[in-house]
């Protein structure tokens, strides 16, 4: 491939590298800027007088005797109890990913192995469900959840997120299982296995690449959700994203914007790690649907 790249004339090469560098700055700079600024005081992060204050942290130095301060983080994690939201997010994400993968794997496998017409209609229904914005369903949840006293607690939200996740999981795993040769489980059935045994002993050992990729996207959906979690969770059960949104209302008035900045950086960090470790899987997951369709 490098031979192809070498054939580009110089001016085109400069143009391409210039554009890519510009994009990289656009994509990455906001995150590093906010990370850097989260260790400053508000007067530096929002510097009216001189924008270089945000880099040098002059006001931070005046206040705390050092160019870096962790008051934002302390304020968010201890004073505003952001740790509680972090724990809630971990619980929600863990159970959403586990449950939706378990039931999604079974369903996706069945859809890929059954040749009847109804599988098509089930997949179409799933596609329609996938296209509906989750927030349109929320008003349908609230009334029964209030009636039955299910509102505000984590398990309800977990089940709702699992259900909202299912259409996507089914499509993804359906196309993944179709790429596993049917002969594999057919031959196991010839040897006397039931369908479930064939699934258990033949398919499960080879399905992990597809399942992990799907799991990543389930995780992202649960982690990033704002509309459903902010509507279905009570104040003390909030996950990180609605908690940050709640910060905004109070901190702008109290002048504690830095708490929100620190919380935002804290909530972004796990996603960075995730992309770092699973870059290839995320890319292959995004393209799997596209190349097929």
């Amino acid at each position: 491939m490098s031979s192809v790249a070498n054939r580009y004339p110089v001016h085109l090469k400069v143009l391409i590298y210039g554009f890519i560098i510009l994009w990289v700055i656009m994509a990455a700079f906001p995150f590093f800027w906010t990370l850097w600024g989260s260790f400053k005081v508000e007067l530096d992060f929002f510097s009216i007088a001189d924008w270089t204050n945000a880099l040098t942290g002059r006001n931070t130095f005046d206040t705390y005797g050092s160019s870096f301060t962790d008051t934002g983080y302390k304020g968010a994690w201890i004073q505003e109890e952001f740790w509680r939201a972090a724990i809630n997010t971990s619980i929600v994400c863990f159970f959403v990913v586990c449950t939706s993968l378990t039931i999604g794997t079974l369903g996706g496998y069945a859809l890929s192995r059954s040749g009847y017409r109804y599988t098509f209609w089930l997949l179409i229904t799933a596609l329609i469900f996938r296209a509906m914005p989750p927030i349109t369903l929320v008003s349908g949840y609230l009334l029964p959840f209030f009636e039955w006293n299910l509102w505000g607690i984590l398990p309800t939200t977990i089940i709702v997120l699992v259900a909202i996740n299912q259409p996507f999981t089914l499509w993804m795993l359906h196309s993944f299982f179709q790429s596993i040769p049917k002969e594999l489980d057919e031959s196991a059935k010839v040897d006397g296995c039931t369908q479930f045994q064939a699934f258990r002993y033949v398919i499960i050992p080879v399905m992990w690449p597809g399942v992990i990729t799907t799991g990543l996207f389930s995780f992202l959906l649960a982690y990033n959700d704002f509309a459903v979690t902010s509507m279905l969770l009570s104040d003390e059960n909030r996950t990180m994203v609605p908690k940050i949104a709640a910060f905004l209302g109070t901190t702008y008035t109290e002048g504690n914007v830095m708490f929100a900045v620190a919380a935002v950086v804290s909530a972004t960090a796990p996603l960075f790690v995730l992309v770092m470790f699973f870059q290839r899987r995320i890319v292959s997951g995004l393209t799997a649907g596209a190349v097929k369709g």
Binding site: A27, V264, L271, Q279, I282
Partner: peptide, 25 residues
Amino acid sequence: GLVIFVSLLPMIVTPLIGSLILFWM
């Protein structure tokens, strides 16, 4: 590899958080 890693960030990050980061800038 590095460029692809960086390119994924704006998409992966929570929409609310991404918009807040830009909003503050």
